[in-house]
Amino acid sequence: MSESDNTSRGKSGVQHFIVPEDFAGQRIDNFLMARLKGVPRSRIYRILRKGEVRVNKKRIDASYRLLTGDDVRLPPVFLAERARQVPPSAATETLLADRILYEDDYLLIINKPAGMSVHAGSTVRVGVVEALRHMYPKLPHLELAHRLDSETSGCLVLAKKKRILREVHSLLREGKVKKIYWTLTKGKWKDSELRVDLPLHKDYQDGGKHVVEVHKEGKSALTVFHTLQSFAREASLMEVNLFTGRTHQIRVHAQHQGHPVACDDRYGDPEFNKQARQWGLRRMFLHAKQIDFTLPSLNQRITVEAPLDPELNAIIKALTTRYT
């Protein structure tokens, strides 16, 4: 990969990257985050939104996937914006080590804790991937194969080798990764509400905050809900089959159907969230329960299930006692 950098007084010069084969298929936003480690995500999305990043002299958006040989031009970036990263604490390392669900020479799958971001950022000094790289010093290129919201717990896949990363990305794009979530939502669902095939549009506002809504000009998104247990008309425990991987997909589709996720502070219902906290819930009830896919290059099927955290099990038990 070739690049030029005239760094001076904390500000980089114009930089050019020629994309090698190993990075083909990667999203431009993820590519930039790896190149500009520590620069706030909000800054990266801002320069993308303003067209300051060019690929082959053309404007692109955050979802653009790189091709071998692409010429990526970056504008001058103030490196002083980088957040000071710190190594993970011993408690964080122990927590993550205890939540490893699967590991081999190619993949690492953990039960991500709720409240922990997958990446470091402007206000997050260490994320899951940075902590795991610190724990696995011989794997400096350990990469996330996908993402989970910081508030979401459950199955999170990381790839140890770039070719495996590309393979998992390809499976995700082709819809060949089965992803099952469990969530607690408001009210009782009707059969007609369970299949949600509605496009989602994502907008990055200042500060890098994602705002997602159902919009006819958005990207296709398919979510299928299945009722596991209803608690009178107050709440429902739902199993969710995610056929696409749009940002905040489950949360926005559930909200659109009138059944927002419990303790979702962004898309949720304030009164329902207040009620859920009275039941004892202190986090968003959304959990990536299972992931299932086959790596063609290895002819290897990977099926992993993440147990619910004790707090979520306690809420289900309390609601079962109260309403059944």
Results as ranks from 00 to 15, higher is better:
residue 99 R to T: 03
residue 101 L to D: 11
residue 71 D to H: 14
residue 56 N to T: 09
residue 102 Y to K: 00
residue 251 R to N: 08
residue 158 L to P: 06
residue 46 R to G: 07
residue 289 K to F: 09
residue 202 K to I: 10
residue 243 F to P: 00
residue 203 D to L: 05
residue 303 T to L: 15
residue 193 E to C: 03
residue 189 W to A: 12
residue 35 R to V: 05
residue 145 A to H: 03
residue 200 L to H: 01
residue 273 N to H: 07
residue 119 H to Q: 14
residue 21 E to H: 13
residue 102 Y to R: 09
residue 83 A to P: 00
residue 144 L to H: 06
residue 45 Y to Q: 02
residue 35 R to T: 09
residue 304 V to S: 05
residue 36 L to S: 09
residue 159 A to Q: 01
residue 143 E to A: 15
residue 130 E to H: 04
residue 94 T to M: 12
residue 39 V to M: 01
residue 118 V to K: 05
residue 109 I to D: 09
residue 186 K to D: 03
residue 105 D to K: 14
residue 148 L to S: 04
residue 260 P to W: 05
residue 131 A to K: 01
residue 29 D to L: 05
residue 164 I to D: 02
residue 25 G to A: 08
residue 208 G to W: 01
residue 27 R to D: 11
residue 115 G to C: 05
residue 272 F to L: 03
residue 206 D to S: 10
residue 259 H to W: 09
residue 63 S to D: 12
residue 14 V to P: 13
residue 267 Y to V: 07
residue 6 N to E: 14
residue 193 E to T: 04
residue 92 T to E: 11
residue 190 K to R: 14
residue 67 L to M: 14
residue 75 P to M: 00
residue 158 L to E: 03
residue 279 W to R: 12
residue 4 S to V: 15
residue 29 D to H: 10
residue 44 I to S: 01
residue 1 M to C: 10
residue 33 M to R: 14
residue 196 V to K: 00
residue 178 K to M: 10
residue 175 G to Y: 06
residue 121 G to K: 07
residue 137 P to L: 01
residue 194 L to A: 02
residue 215 H to N: 13
residue 189 W to K: 05
residue 234 E to T: 14
residue 62 A to K: 14
residue 55 V to E: 08
residue 123 T to M: 03
residue 274 K to F: 07
residue 310 P to I: 09
residue 60 I to M: 04
residue 148 L to H: 05
residue 307 P to N: 02
residue 309 D to M: 10
residue 101 L to K: 10
residue 298 L to H: 13
residue 18 I to L: 12
residue 262 A to I: 13
residue 180 I to S: 08
residue 90 A to N: 11
residue 297 S to I: 13
residue 23 F to V: 09
residue 324 T to N: 15
residue 37 K to Q: 14
residue 233 R to A: 09
residue 313 N to V: 07
residue 131 A to I: 02
residue 250 I to G: 11
residue 6 N to S: 13
residue 60 I to S: 01
residue 217 E to P: 00
residue 171 L to H: 03
residue 233 R to G: 14
residue 114 A to T: 15
residue 133 R to H: 00
residue 182 W to C: 06
residue 306 A to G: 10
residue 1 M to A: 12
residue 32 L to Q: 06
residue 144 L to D: 04
residue 115 G to I: 07
residue 32 L to M: 09
residue 316 I to Y: 00
residue 159 A to F: 05
residue 145 A to L: 03
residue 88 P to F: 06
residue 185 T to V: 15
residue 50 K to Q: 15
residue 276 A to E: 03
residue 299 N to T: 11
residue 141 H to W: 02
residue 268 G to K: 08
residue 14 V to L: 12
residue 232 A to K: 13
residue 42 S to G: 10
residue 171 L to Q: 07
residue 150 S to N: 03
residue 314 A to K: 14
residue 170 S to A: 13
residue 204 Y to Q: 08
residue 148 L to D: 04
residue 185 T to E: 07
residue 311 E to M: 12
residue 126 V to E: 05
residue 138 K to I: 04
residue 177 V to D: 03
residue 276 A to H: 01
residue 94 T to V: 05
residue 4 S to R: 15
residue 140 P to R: 02
residue 49 R to G: 08
residue 104 D to H: 04
residue 228 L to F: 09
residue 147 R to D: 02
residue 95 L to Y: 01
residue 129 V to H: 03
residue 245 G to T: 08
residue 276 A to P: 07
residue 65 R to L: 12
residue 234 E to C: 11
residue 65 R to M: 06
residue 195 R to F: 12
residue 288 A to S: 15
residue 278 Q to G: 14
residue 155 C to F: 00
residue 187 G to N: 06
residue 150 S to T: 11
residue 309 D to L: 14
residue 95 L to I: 08
residue 44 I to C: 03
